[in-house]
Design a binder for these strands. Structure first.
Length: 586
RNA sequence: GGGCUCGUAGUGAAGUGGUUAUCACGCCUCCCUGUCACGGAGGAGAUCGCCGGUUCAAGUCCGGUCGGGCCCGCCA
């Protein structure tokens, strides 16, 4: 009977067959031990000269040979038990050993501490996946999907798959285009998200839709962002006019994933809803990590007349002065502070002013410019204690928030304030509908144009368009944006007006979003939904910081699949069939 | 597109401008009946990513280039 490694110890006294890869061979000359590994663990085989055929085969074995071994499961003597492996109390006395396949010497090591570079691991991913940690990840991911599906089905969501061959969308990320053979000169595009399809499902009378959807974006990757394709839990609910209904529907699933699935501690049982503006002011980012404090503190009022020109000028110019207090940062060396200064500069700061509170004294290059009362105010408002350092940002409000937000994160990293066993969730709500493009200084959509402006048609008449809020919400997990959603704009009149504010006429909207706009003319129910980035959320739940660690076959940072060598050239006939010609770039 | 950073036997690492480039794992040969990442003896394996420069002398310094990683831009 063939059994898995994890079952061997339960078959003591029986004859069994185990199959797997040779993990280790210990040849004592007249006695050979083989560690055979399958996805459940390791079993020790013992091969003795009394079984000459098996012994002869065992002598040939090398790492990663594929074997089938039959023998008697035998209890080990007490002093021979190996507590490091699950089957360590027994071993298999082999009577029959078959070499199912051989292996050349490996290009990367599978067991041991020396894990190869990522590019080699990706090139030989099929070997890398044999490592127990990767095996565990794949299985955990399958379990994760099951929890999600069970929950969604339990909430009466219906899974509908939407087309992979879709249309290029004018807004958003770069598309992957697929040339049409039948229709010369025309192209499909791989969907960046099933956004339009799911909204059309609402019009189509599916009240609760969900899908574990493959999404495609041709944008440069990051540590938390895959190149090419990735997976979303996409969902939409009709007859919903309040985003809170969506948030309340999915929140229990995420909490369940945090506690039951990942076994992590939930930082806040009540997931806070934080308006975008508040998040920017308190944390300097719209994806705050709530596991630690160090919130940004406004000091503009206290320092508007400061003798330190940088502060006074920033405020006089319509900017602000804010600070964060880094607990225990007095221990930072000069060069460490310099490297934080570099980070601040990279985010647009002119420099990084700071006050060190140490041994009852204030030490700082700028202390001589500050009045005792100002220092007292800074201490009070930031709550700085002995041993702390207060860092300042003085500039335009946006720059200050960005700089201090980044520093807050860097300090938390440096002082190890990010508890890996804790997951902090929050919803960011009330995003601005329109934002000023920093480069062109022109008004543009803040997030996506399909969400409902809060207050509807009336709100769009606002004098200052930047005050208009979108009924849009993101969920943030430990500083990562894991979900984005909104109450959709299902009213053609409002949709036209949303674009009209930016100067786009009706024809423009009709041309680009024709299917959706005409569908909305035939009784579209109000609807709302959201989409979770499943790869990224899984990464955070697993405590990883590199998203490729949780994906079986990811592309590298250049969008290359090193294992399959894709993308690759195609032959001329294929191009011809697709009515394509390669052009030399000038 | 931009910034930072890394590139040394199959793998992971060490390597003050100065002898024949070091170590561990892996690989090959031999020995070994209780090991468990077995042990012992021996051996092979590197144009130090590539090109150029400085120097009496370059793995080491400089310039360029290619490749990986992180970040910015980008990701409605």
């Amino acid at each position: 009977m063939r059994i898995l490694s994890s079952d061997v110890s339960g078959h003591s006294g029986k004859t069994v067959t185990v199959k797997g890869w040779v993990s280790s061979r210990r040849d004592h000359g007249g006695l050979i031990f083989i560690d055979v590994r399958d996805h459940t663990g390791i079993t020790q085989l013992v091969i003795q000269p009394e079984t000459p055929q098996a012994f002869a085969n065992a002598e040939q074995l090398r790492d990663e040979f594929v074997v089938s071994a039959t023998g008697l499961v035998t209890k080990r003597a007490d002093n021979l038990v190996n507590p490091n492996i699950e089957s360590g109390s027994v071993e298999v006395k082999v009577t029959e050993l078959t070499i199912l396949n051989r292996s050349e010497a490996l290009p990367i090591q599978i067991h041991g501490d020396a894990i190869a570079n990522e590019d080699l691991r990706l090139k030989y991913r099929y070997l890398d996946l044999r490592r127990p940690k990767m095996q565990e990840t794949l299985r955990r991911r399958a379990a994760y999907y099951k929890v999600i599906r069970d929950y969604m089905e339990g909430c009466s969501f219906v899974e509908v798959t939407t087309p992979i061959l879709a249309n290029s969308s004018p807004e958003g990320a770069r598309d992957f285009l697929v040339p049409s053979r039948v229709h010369a000169g025309k192209f499909y595009a791989l969907p960046q998200a099933p956004q339009q399809f799911k909204q059309l499902l609402m019009v189509g009378g599916v009240p609760r839709y969900y899908q574990i959807a493959t999404c495609f974006r041709d944008e440069d990757p990051r540590g938390d962002r895959l190149y090419g394709d990735f997976y979303q839990l996409d969902l939409e609910m009709s007859f919903v006019e309040d985003g809170e209904e969506v948030r309340a529907t999915v929140e229990p699933l995420i909490k369940q994933l945090v506690s039951d699935f990942a076994g992590k501690k939930l930082f806040n049982a009540d997931v806070p809803r934080i308006p975008f503006v508040e998040a920017m002011e308190r944390f300097g980012t719209d994806k705050p990590d709530l596991r630690f404090g160090m919130e940004l503190v406004e000091l503009s009022e206290e320092l508007k007349l400061s003798g330190f020109g940088v502060f006074a000028k920033a405020i006089a110019d319509g900017g602000c002065v804010k600070a964060i207090c880094a607990p225990g940062a007095a221990s930072l060396s000069r060069s460490q502070i310099d490297s934080f200064t570099e980070i601040a500069k990279s985010e647009g700061a002119g420099g990084l002013a700071y006050l060190t509170f140490e041994n009852g004294e204030v030490k700082s290059p700028i202390a001589k410019f500050l009045q005792p009362q100002e220092i007292e105010d800074i201490k009070t408002k930031t709550g700085a204690a002995d041993g702390d350092v207060v860092f300042f940002g003085a500039d335009k409000r946006m720059v200050v928030n960005k700089v201090l937000g980044r520093l807050r994160n860097e300090f938390a990293e440096h002082f190890k304030l990010k508890d890996p066993d804790v997951i902090a969730l929050c919803w960011i709500v009330d995003f601005p509908f329109y934002e000023l493009d920093q480069k062109t200084q022109k008004l543009d959509f803040g997030h996506n144009p399909f969400s409902m402006p809060k207050g509807g048609l009336e709100a769009l008449k606002a004098e200052d368009k930047q005050t208009i809020l979108a009924d849009q919400y993101d969920m943030v997990m430990n500083g990562y944006e894991i979900c984005s959603g909104g109450v959709r704009n299902h009213n053609p009149q409002v949709l036209y007006e949303v674009f009209n504010v930016l100067g786009y006429d009706k024809a423009y909207v009709d041309q680009r979003f024709g299917a959706m706009i005409s569908a909305f003319k035939y009784g579209a129910p109000p609807h709302a939904g959201c989409a979770y980035g499943l790869d990224r959320m899984f990464m955070v739940l697993m405590g990883e910081t590199n998203i490729r660690e949780v994906v079986a076959f990811p592309k590298n940072g250049s969008g290359i699949d090193a294992m399959m060598s894709s993308p690759s050239l195609v032959d001329d006939q294929q191009l011809k069939d697709l009515h394509l010609k390669l052009v030399e770039e000038s």
